[in-house]
Write a protein that binds this DNA or RNA. Structure first.
Length: 540
RNA sequence: GCCUCCGUAGCUCAACUGGACAGAGCGGGUGGCUUCUACCCACCAGGUUGCGGGUUCGACUCCUGCCGGGGGCACCA
């Protein structure tokens, strides 16, 4: 149930009127779809009902649209300035200035905390697991994409009312960490690392810190975990929970899981191994849980881990995985189904991998060979804001190419600066207003009807869209949509700032109205940047 | 071979889940500060949305066949 806002109010009013008009035109059962046209000349809202209903009623779209428009013009006279028919048969609505004033008052009244805060996910507990890189070394630069995405997704979900837990699964058990421990031990002795070990320079550095009596695997995992947490901290990403794979084995959770799978008849033995009947639940083949040598595969602890997450009472589990784990999705969902869970409650977001380039050459990201760029280095070069916006610029489901030279050498050209500059300009404007002793009068006493410039209208239009953008970004797990929106708002503000004097305007009424518009823009930028996890500087 | 994601301006990418003339940034060109921050604004150039069919009033979006690329098809993690 969306919270009532100026935007949802007008939407509801328009829908109601359209249904009424359709009824009077003898058309039933058409659900009106309301859209915000891309072009201002197409009005503030538009509906395609005439196009959809024309076929059904045997009338020409334009003709039906004209009839509907006439009806709507009469019914909506109080709220809408104009109803026009355009193109193949769209009905476009132009809102009156009173509506825009109402919106502006609402943004200002609700402020950074309240505006575009929704309750669509109220009462929903969501667990988001992301990054979860192996504790065998520092995070590489590409991991920044998962960190930025996951954290921003959580922020967007929270803005929609969800209770969110950020979780990191530490694979501190199994072949990789054993090899990592062996590499540490070898380096500490001064020996070369084993053939299949970790070659990176960090291994030598860490080995030098390692106490002689330490267990290399346990110590190494802790050391890596600490490094990872520190790096994520630099990016402003904080996890509520670090779950340990080893702990799940040690405390019997894995055994319990296996027992339950057995009881449910979901496993069988063959060739000395224990198999999960994942084909019963849509997987392409059955999967090994316990190898013939008695070792656990990676799958079993991970199944236990997801079972544990469900047991902690979440309504939805979101896993953010790299596309290289695609083949893993079906078996995990099959396992959850075998345990009696609704597979829809486990949602796997597959993110496409990042290619980092330097001098046009791809930068390799291998911990094993030690040939990699650390996330820490990237953050040292460009800072967290630039890093985050770079990773959030694009949809998680498209391949991303990041040119390191460009974002480091020319970080002042980053979109982060563009949007932050808009915020800094607003802060500067407010400082200048204070210096000139121009105070904002209570908004209720201001005549906001003077905001008629097209630059002003564009800013207001952006602001009116934010609640919808937040909801859509949450629903489609796409925080980059917030990024796109923030850039648009910043762009429209810069254009407004350029063309519309605020403090310099001779008419005090215009000065007041514009000051409020500027304040509303500040609110919008602050909300958007907060959802992206980017700072809002007052000075640049 | 099978599964999956992708292919949009010179480059990096958007495009409100099927809508109107496909939009931004960077790069290129031209102009704009005696001014509330020029890290900004405006204009120009740049496109057969990989290619061919199909569905639809309407397709970057859906279906299908090719072409090209990433990733995956373990008793690794």
């Amino acid at each position: 149930m969306p919270q009532s806002t100026v935007a949802t109010d007008i939407c509801a009013r328009l829908s109601e009127a359209i249904v009424g008009a359709l009824g009077r035109a003898g058309i039933e059962g058409v659900q009106p779809v309301l859209d915000r046209p891309a072009r201002p000349e197409h009005g503030d809202w538009a509906t395609n009902v005439a196009l959809v209903a024309a076929g059904r009623s045997g009338r020409k779209p334009r003709e039906l649209a004209d009839a509907l428009a006439g009806d709507l013009r009469a019914t909506l006279a109080d709220h809408v300035a104009a109803v026009e028919v355009a193109g193949p048969g769209f009905v476009n609505f132009r809102l009156g200035p009173g509506w825009w004033a109402e919106l502006l008052r609402q943004v200002v009244a609700q402020g950074t905390q309240g505006f575009a805060r929704l309750d669509v996910l109220a009462g929903t507990r969501v667990d988001v697991e992301f990054v979860s890189a192996n504790p065998t070394g520092p995070l590489h630069a590409g991991a920044g994409r998962w960190a930025a995405y996951g954290d921003s997704l959580c922020r967007v979900l929270e803005r929609c009312g969800a209770t969110v837990e950020r979780e990191y699964f530490v694979n501190d058990r199994g072949g990789q960490v054993v090899r990592f421990g062996e590499s540490l031990a070898a380096r500490r002795r001064g020996d070369p690392v084993p053939e299949d070990g970790y070659q990176g320079d960090y291994v030598s550095a860490w080995a030098a810190e390692m106490p002689a009596d330490a267990d290399p695997v346990a110590w190494g995992c802790e050391r890596a975990k600490r490094d990872i947490a520190e790096t994520l901290d630099l990016l402003g990403v904080h996890f509520d929970r670090w779950s340990s794979e080893k702990a799940l084995v040690d405390d019997g959770t894995v055994d319990d899981t296996l027992r339950e799978l057995r009881e449910r008849g979901a496993v069988y033995e063959s060739e000395g191994a224990l198999w999960l009947r994942s084909t019963d639940h849509g997987d392409s083949k059955d999967r090994v849980l316990v190898k013939s040598d008695g070792d656990l595969t990676y799958l079993l602890p991970d199944v236990a881990y997801h079972r544990d997450k469900f047991a902690r009472g979440f309504d939805l589990l979101v896993d953010v995985w790299g596309a290289d784990h695609h083949g893993y999705v079906a078996r995990m969902q099959a396992a959850m189904q075998a345990l009696g869970h609704d597979p829809a409650q486990l949602e796997v977001v597959l993110g496409q991998l990042v290619t980092l380039e330097r001098d046009g050459q791809p930068v390799r990201l291998s911990k094993r060979t030690g040939d990699m760029l650390e996330l820490r280095e990237l953050l040292g070069a460009v800072g967290p804001d630039v890093a985050r916006i770079v990773f959030l610029l694009q949809s998680i489901e498209t391949h991303q190419t990041v040119d390191l030279d460009r974002i480091t050498r020319q970080s002042s050209e980053s979109p982060a600066f563009y949007v932050q500059y808009a915020h800094a300009r607003i802060a500067s404007l407010e400082r200048e207003a204070a210096r000139q002793q121009v105070a904002r009068q209570p908004i209720g006493t201001c005549d906001l009807g003077v905001l008629v410039h097209e630059r002003e209208a564009a800013v207001l239009r952006s602001l009116s869209e934010l609640p919808d953008v937040v909801q859509a970004a949450a629903a489609s797990r796409a925080p980059h949509q917030v990024c796109t929106w923030v850039r648009q708002l910043a762009q429209r503000f810069h254009a407004f700032y350029h063309d519309c004097p605020v403090l310099r305007h001779p008419d005090p009424a215009v000065v007041q109205a514009r000051l409020w518009l500027v304040e509303a823009t500040r609110v919008g930028l602050a909300i958007g940047l907060d959802l992206l996890g980017i700072h809002t500087p007052d000075l640049m």
